[in-house]
Amino acid sequence: MALSAPPAVAAPAPARGLRRRRLLWLVIALAVLCAVAIASVGVGSRTVSVGDVLAALGGSVDGFDEAAVAKRIPRTLLAVLAGAALGLSGAVMQGVTRNPLADPGILGVNTGASLAVVAALATVGLSSATGYIWVAIAGASVTAVFVYTVGSLGRGGASPLKLALAGAATSAALTSLISAVVLPRGDISGTVRSWLIGGVGGATFASISQVLPFLAVGLLLSMLSARSLNSLALGDELAAGLGERVAVARGAAAFGAVLLCGAVTAVTGPIGFVGLVVPHACRLLIGVDHRWLLPLSAVLGAILLTSTDVLGRIVARPEEIDVGIITALVGAPFFIYIVRRQKVREL
């Protein structure tokens, strides 16, 4: 660790250095995000010049290029929002469960949201986007509570291994229920299949504006819990000793995380591994303080999702590869790397 605790005597100077370094990374990340977002608007099966991008931003939709840009702006916005929400959600989940393997995908929360949406689609025939979001959040919350309860049964509490296994098993079970719901319904299976891959292609300003309030509440809850996540990282007893109301703090943070990933899943479909990879990368850059880790995770998550979306548009031109596929292809090796790095006893 480059950021091992500085000796007590020389505390102020390195602390200032650390702070400067964290700010620097945050600024760099924001700059990269801007660049990626501009690239995302300009690049695709039809590459658009910067001048046309600016013209389209000015409201003109005359040429093909400007029409393409007008289509790509909501898409880029959704990618940024979804990436930020997933990265933040992963960081909070890893903090709440004190588990390096926590991720909305691994813990089965995304699958829970998916099952809820698919079931609602098949039985009630949801039409409003807000309905999707509520249903997805309900499914995500139930699954999260369930997986956490199951994973923390028995001796040793919620160890990383038990949680990851409980999540994976729950996810497998829910996936087979999804196929049982979808299979006899030929009429919705096409929609459901493309939704289940997870992508930001179908974004519109209307769907974004509907998901925005949920994301805002989730963001607020998560950011407010940064300080308590820091004390929770010391262990429950120590956190209680520091005056933290452990159960309340954990519940609020977890609810924020579930809100974020449930709402995103409702719009984009399940996108895995963003929440796993991003917090680890952030910890390498700026250390483990959640007050810095959470914002940087959000920014890095946005960068990751937006850039993989651009990548998916470039590699298979003129077709596209949905972002959910690429994040799984990139994220799963990273997951394996983390698993291999863990000591056997911790697993």
């Binding site: 393997l101 994976a168 891959i197 959910g324 596929i325 799963a332």
Partner: peptide, 12 residues
């Protein structure tokens, strides 16, 4: 766990 990771990749 590694199998779960590989399975996620293959499913996608």
């Amino acid at each position: 766990l590694i199998g779960i990771g590989i399975a996620a990749m293959l499913d996608s």
